[in-house]
Design a protein around this nucleic acid. Sequence first.
RNA 1: GCACGCGUGGCCAAAUCGGCAAAGGCGCCGGUCUUAGAAACCGGAUAUUGAAGGUUCGAAUCCUUCCGCGUGCACCA
Length: 886
Amino acid sequence: MDEKYFPKKIEQKWQAKWADAKVFEVQIDDERPKFYQLEMLPYPSGNLHMGHVRNYSVGDAVAWYKRLKGFNVLHPIGWDSFGQPAEDAAVKRKVNPRDWTEENIKAMRGQLQRLGLSYDWSREIAAHRPEYYKFDQWFFLKMYDKGLAYKKMTQVNWCETDQATLSNEQASGGLCWRCGNPVTKRDLEQWFFKTTAYADELLDGLNTIEAGWPANVLKRQRDWIGRSEGALVDFEVRVPGKTGSLKPEDRRKVRVFTTRIDTIFGANAIVLAAEHPLIEEFGGGFSAEVHAKIEEILREKAKPADHEAEVEKDGIDTGLKAVNPFSGEELPVWVGNYVMMEYGTGAVMSVPAHDERDFEFAKKFGLPIRQVISEPHLAHEHHTMQALALEDPYTESGVLVHSDYWNGKTSEAAKQEMTHHAHLHGFGEAATTYKLRDWGISRQRFWGSPIPIVYCDTCGTVPVHFDDLPVELPENAPITGTGESPLSKVSEFVETECPKCGGPGRRETDTMDTFVDSSWYFFRYTDPANEILPFSPDLAAYWTPVDQYIGGDDHAVMHLIYTRFWTKVMRDLGLVKFGEPVTRLLTQGMVVGETFFDDETGKRIYAAPGEVTVERDAKGKIVSARSADGKALKFAIERMSKSKGNGVDPDEMVEIYGADAARLFVLFAAPVENELVWNEAGIEGAVRFLQRIWRFVHRWRDSFAKAASGSEQSEVARKLRRKTHQTIRRIDQSLDTLQFNTPVAALMELCNALYDSGIEPENASADEAAAVQEGVTSLVLMLTPFAPHTAEELYSVLIGNENGMLANGALFPEFSEELAADDEIEVVIQVNGKLRSKFAAKPGEDRSKLEAAALADPKAQEFIAGKEVVKVVVVPDKLVNIVVKG
RNA sequence: GCACGCGUGGCCAAAUCGGCAAAGGCGCCGGUCUUAGAAACCGGAUAUUGAAGGUUCGAAUCCUUCCGCGUGCACCA
């Protein structure tokens, strides 16, 4: 042990020792409970950023904590190595995506290793390697067999900037999830996975994992699935001019979805989406004005959505009529810009009195507003009054009025009975709709897993045989970045034999969405070399489900819905026995920093913070910023990244401060779920703290020999032991509940207590030396999750060998309730809620004694003197509050 | 607009069930050491817990309103 703390030296030393002894490589062990600690796998961009450091530091802390708690911990890592940036690099820099990716992986693996993260590197996987994506294809074929993978012509979300197809999740809010630019629509034939087949399960399954998942993720998933229960109702459509009964083949119906069938007597119109098929069908009879309006609505819809402004309701009466099947009333059929073709049936019944949107629409166009639901206590009044001027729509449940036979029924009862009635008479049925759509997985990309399908002129769409997997990507393809599938230009790839008839066939040239790779990767870690199956069900049965998953909450809907879907499919394939892959989820906040930019050109051009002159107010907030050439810049706090110039390079930090200090600081600086605003100064405090422990151990290293416990303990020794055991209790609880900042503070306090105890190696008695030894050993062990290299080194000094904690069977310290207990408690005396005095009492002293002691207290008596004691509140072990009057 | 969350010293933050006017770190100030500084060590200051009301013997903690900030959803019938 050096006298001084040289982080680099000990970090290299222990990283080598860990690697040589393969201490983090794990196998099935039925003797110990297992723990699967997982962090979201990185995209190999080539550079680790602070967000990664945070994510992986947290995961590593949990992994170490669980190891020291006696668990058999699986802690793997891999690479989400398919995806667009590799193609961008190919276009921009003329490099081969494969080479580029492999180099990046190499660089980032080195960065992770320098951070000393305790991964089982023998299980490392990479999505772009054929031995991995073979099983993307394997799963595709299994889903194809089960009817869960299908192809259809569809309008896809298309990002003009990225030249890419996006799934609904990736195009959420009309903006591209990657670049933030508006999404447009395009017609393409696409492959889909039937996520909707599991819609109910995806929703209901959330209840079973509720305890371990953040509330906001659960909420967002529920919103995204968006189940709503209601009814479908058919309205017969009449064409004006044609009277009398139509021939059956001329009869048309418009079907609406409603969650409020109980309001149907209040319907004043049917409103269609502009894309509704009925419009096409009857369009010939529409006036020019109607056509113009429909065109206008469609045009507006195609425009990028401005989310700030609320779109004003617009529409027009088509002239068609529809018959309310309940009342027989003839209603006008409108087209409205607020009705979406993608949801429900693309047609709604407009009930302005009980729906805000319909209300707004009716107000604008002067449509009648009829109240048919009333608050129960007003039902009679409302029923007798003919016209009611509603100020606002009444959207709650209530009692039906003006609804014929159904008058007086509650909304709940009416919904059931009316749905039943519609069903009985053949014009409706109960129905459930979802916002969740099937998952479009086709991408017109090169750098992804090929979809294992062959098109044959005779046999049609033919799946590749399982034995012929993987369908390997060619070495390279002409990547133009213009949105066509690069593979379609590689004839060796495209031209093949039909797996069925042996005749000429053409391969599917689209590749799969990269979210496919990440939907099942953590199962692969359990059996990474399996060539027959994605993984052995037996191995997966031991390790999975994941006990703790950690990642950014930007994946709350996409990745985490896909992987839950995938798990349910795997369950139905017999690979696993459960439907929820992740028991506990932790979403960490972003690491952000100040950015400075110029957006005059419409695009943000970032300036390096070092070259910016910043003016700050008293609170440190930025007031103004100027670039080196004196130009005023805009500023913001944004996610750290290299391109924005506010990134801190992890390698540099490790070089200057050491990996342990960097990790310790990142964990200490803020609660994990919070945003972390980067400030450079704090990390020095982390180094100082590590040095402080280091020096303490160094000072004491030769003096533990005289330690002997069991002897009579001095007051200082007992006090120190109490602090030690209280700290163990605190840290244990914190780590169990995934708090990392508070245990670091507790470790600092314990360290301070060791220094403050006044016990010196030269004159310590045997019991005092023993107390110090216990304190410092506990401190070092508990430091491990935060600063493992330093902890290992110090532990080796304390224990006298360099085999490492795990080989020595080291365990997280156990606290003793008895030693942690205070032997004397300070009880507070309040008079009328104000602190007036204190006295010492035994823990657990009974109320009457505490009360008597408080009343007898001389200082308290000063405040009670001459007044009437109204009552005395005693909180055992805490305080006595004397309430007086006068 | 709707829903949810947050607001504690200059900054980041802690405080089971309401219970000692409030931990720890950064920063700041002073001292020791040093030629000086840095580091280290020792010591110190700094909080009507966003505002106003309410409940209570007692409120950072519970309730109401307001202000500020953040996140999610955004015409989902």
